[in-house]
Structure formats: C-alpha cells, structure tokens
Design a protein around this nucleic acid. Structure first.
Lengths: 137, 137
DNA sequence: GCAACCAGTTGCATTTCGCAACTACTGCAA
DNA sequence: TTGCAGTAGTTGCGAAATGCAACTGGTTGC
C-alpha cells in the first residue's frame, strides 16, 4: 500500500491538516499558550475529548508536537511544539491575513491576530523566538 | 442554529478548507492551469467525481471560484478563481515552504513549487498578476 | 478518607467520504 | 441521422470520521 496519495507539497500538507480540528489545536498551543489536555478541551469551538486525543496522537506521530510529563503532577502531560510545529507560524499568519480580508472575523475577540498580521516580519520573528524559547527543550 | 463554530480567523478558514481535497483542487486551478471538470478529475491524487462536484459547489458558494459556460461548448463549464481565490496564493507559498522543509516532497515532479518558494515576493507578484489576467473577467 | 481533578476510553448514533456504476446531454464524423 | 466519444455530473452503498454522553482508573489537595 502507498504511504501518500502523491508527493506534491500541497497534498502532503493536506494529508496532515485536512480536517476541521488539527490547525485549531495548533492555534491554541501556539497563540493561546495552552499546554494541557484540559486547557485544549476548552477551545472556543468545543472539541470532543476523543477527537482531541486522536489529533494529539496524530500530531505527535507527525513530529509537529511533543508530549512530556509534568514534573509537578504525575498525571498531567505538557504538549509542546517542535521546530516543525513552530515553522507553521508563517502559514498561520497568511491564513490570518486571508481571513481578515475575506471572512467575517470578530475583530474584537481576535485583536492579537490582527496585530500579528499587521506586525510584519519583525513581529513574526519575535513571536518565533518566543515560541522557540517556550517550547524547545 | 449557528453559522460558524467561532469567528476566529483560523477556525473560519478551516471550516472551508478543513478537508483533504479543497486545497488540492485550488492548486490544480492555480498552478496547473486546469479549468474544466474533466481536467480536474485527472488530478494526480485521483479525486472521485462526486467529491469534486461537492467541492466545486462549495468553493463557488464561498466565492473562491466562479463557474461560467464555455462559449464554444454548451455543456462545458469553465472554472475560474475569484480575487478571494487568488488571494490564497501566499498561503500556498507558505505551505510549499513548510512542506519542502519538513515533508518528503518529490522535488523532480514539483520543480515549479520549488521555484515559486525560492522566487520570493517578486515572483509571487508576477504569478499573482498572471492569475488576475487569466481568471478575472 | 474523599471530593475534585487529570487524561483519556468506550459505545453508539449521525454525518461525511469515497468508490464504482450509471445518466443525460452535446459535438463530431460518416 | 446515426452512432460514438466526450461533457458534467448523479446515485447507491459500504467505510470511515465525527460528535455526544457516560464512564474509567489514577492523582492531588484538604
């Protein structure tokens, strides 16, 4: 059996993110600072726990996030972005850009998205640095 | 019933493109110059005709593509990108960028993707101009 | 000890997806 | 005018994904 439908960049990306939840989870880890299962459960959109479990497993297998024990709480897991995950930042920014232009975004609720889109490469670089600091080892 | 799960830019975008095919179809229209149903059927990944129909209807309702009669053939439809669709170009480029770095892209088959990613803003601007010329009105 | 919290798991109904076959119409050539 | 290839889909149905609610087994704090 074949591993991929094709080896086109767009297709390979959609094989990973071609569902309604994966990128929303990445958003919460990347921009909302969420690092625990329970935090991710409280997404604005209301994800179900089994779907969240599935996606976290998939994203970890893809090497986009990593999972570690919380030293202060045996049962808690900390989810972090890998470099591969952090590298999704430019895609997120362009999605924000497109969405702000063409979709009915709630500007009051998502001021940080507006800021990031308007902030240009300089702000994006700063955000990237902060993510590397918080998520990589 | 609510129209959207939330009015976050990422979520609004995933409500449209959160499936395995929509962006692959856009890719074929945008980069492969495909404009007819039959051409789109021959995607490398092998889309089924009913899925293609569904997605084309959805993308048209979303205002991302438009559908027009072929003047030379009563039964043929020409699919074009709208400005909203053309504005997906930066997202495509960033997806290419990420994929080239982190996924097993077939570099020989997708040289034009490499070129577009390496070409920077200048080439992207040229491609955008060409798309506007070919697809709008 | 015990209630609240933690990360899931399970079962089941609903929805979506995907494949193969089929339809209805058009243009072309004999 | 008749057949045939080409056009954009539609239909039926089994498989997979999704969503909801309840449940599990362990941990932490009081």
């Amino acid at each position: 059996m074949e591993k991929h439908r094709s080896y086109c960049p767009v297709n390979l990306t959609m094989e990973v993110f071609g569902d309604k939840w994966s990128l929303v989870i990445i958003r919460d880890i990347m921009f909302e600072g969420k690092r625990y299962f329970r935090e991710l459960m409280q997404s604005e959109e209301g994800i179900a726990s089994n779907i969240l479990t599935d996606r976290l497993v998939m994203l970890e297998q893809e090497g986009i996030i990593s999972k570690a024990d919380d030293p202060g709480h045996k049962q808690k897991n900390i989810y972090s972005l890998t470099l591969k995950g952090i590298d999704l930042l430019p895609i997120m920014v362009e999605i924000g850009n497109w969405s702000l232009k063409h979709k009915p975004v709630d500007l009051n609720k998502h001021k940080h998205a507006v800021k990031l889109v308007k902030g240009g490469m300089k702000l994006q670089g700063e955000v990237r640095k902060a993510l590397i600091k918080d998520h990589l080892k």
